[in-house]
Design a protein around this nucleic acid. Structure first.
Lengths: 203, 203
DNA sequence: GCAGAAATCGAACGGACGTTTAATTTACCG
DNA sequence: CGGTAAATTAAACGTCCGTTCGATTTCTGC
């Protein structure tokens, strides 16, 4: 039943934020009594810690696996990077909401800070190091701070998932596989022109 | 005292999310009794509506004013657009959190949906129409959907404000005027290479 | 200066929440 | 089969929250 509780809590936390959903609601969705939360996780915060830890570990694992795959280095890295990001977001639709919740969270929840740190020091640092190597080899434009590059890539791939549910309808960009494919294509094209080195950049 | 309540509630909502701060806390910060909320706004939701309406109206007004300014069309629009976005974000630091809260909000709060719609139909549509005109005149690369262009520009300028408080420390990008300036410079450079038409794009 | 209206307050109410506890069911094993 | 431990529950407890209400203060117009 522990796993059922984690699933229910994750779904509800993604849908409306963990802070706003009650223990009775979570327990009802998991078809157990609210007392099970105390039994398995000690208290409400324990459940919160558990679902955030599980979520971050899953995505961290996925991204790391993809970025360390042997075929990654051989192909066009930028295009691949976009696909990895977007694939991670579509696979776990609650991910952007988790990031959003992280922003809204109270100042210093030590657990969440640590989880965010793990995500940064792991996959994000791997990406930055890869960008550095690409830049050194002349495949990316020189003179750009790779940290800002990494942030821009994240922005292009993550933020649309936040804003599209709000503005997508008005813009005629429905939120489905089609739009996801368009996003990948657009981001790849944008990054190719924005970051990739060109003949005229090399003197 | 009505204004004082709105200010206090906005500050707290930006700091920790409106849902998580109590009426007594808001009232204490405004140096009034909790009963004043009911007196001026009916109930808690009324106060929530009021602060969101005020926030969206202010930013909508600011962006629209800037984008409709006569000197805007004459200068390099892309650079200007980045400055407008970043200026709006730094002027109202709670703005990214408001967007984040919008994402986490319960499915269908009709008010918030309407506010988001106003923001899209106003400033965002103005930006898209301007992009279309620039593209038609050959100053932006052809063949790119201007809607995705607009989303990318928003992403580059807004998302860093969400993610930097989380990962900035680890990356050595402190969150101050310096980093803001770097963000503007980087985004401008990125957009210039990514979207602006070049000689080799024109055949 | 006073009457009436507007503004503000303190205290209390009812409900929801997280948590605890004692009792009951279920599962395991000798 | 029986007994012990784990799992699960229903009910109750104390607390905090949003709200209400009657009383009190402050403003306003005559």
């Amino acid at each position: 039943m522990r796993e059922r509780l984690l699933e229910a809590a994750t779904e509800l936390a993604a849908a409306q934020g963990f802070e706003t959903c009650g223990l009775r609601e979570i327990a009802a969705r998991a078809h157990v009594s609210p007392a099970m939360v105390a039994y398995y996780f000690g208290d409400r915060d324990g459940l919160g810690e558990a679902i955030y830890r599980r979520a971050f570990e899953r995505v961290s694992e996925r991204v790391r696996t993809l970025i360390e795959a042997p075929e990654f280095a051989r192909r066009d890295g930028l295009d691949e990077l976009v696909q990895i990001y977007v694939a991670a977001m579509t696979a776990d639709p609650w991910l952007p909401k988790l990031v959003a919740g992280e922003i809204l969270a109270h100042g210093a929840s030590p657990l969440r800070s640590r989880l965010a740190q793990d995500l940064v020091r792991g996959p994000m640092m791997a990406m930055i190091r890869w960008l550095e190597e690409e830049q050194r080899q002349g495949r990316l434009r020189p003179g750009i701070d790779v940290r800002w590059m990494a942030i821009s890539i994240s922005s292009l791939c993550v933020f649309p998932f936040m804003i599209l549910p709000i503005v997508g309808g008005e813009l005629g960009l429905s939120f489905g596989p089609d739009s996801t494919e368009d996003l990948v294509t657009h981001a790849q094209d944008f990054l190719a022109h924005g970051f990739r080195a060109r003949s005229e950049d090399l003197k």
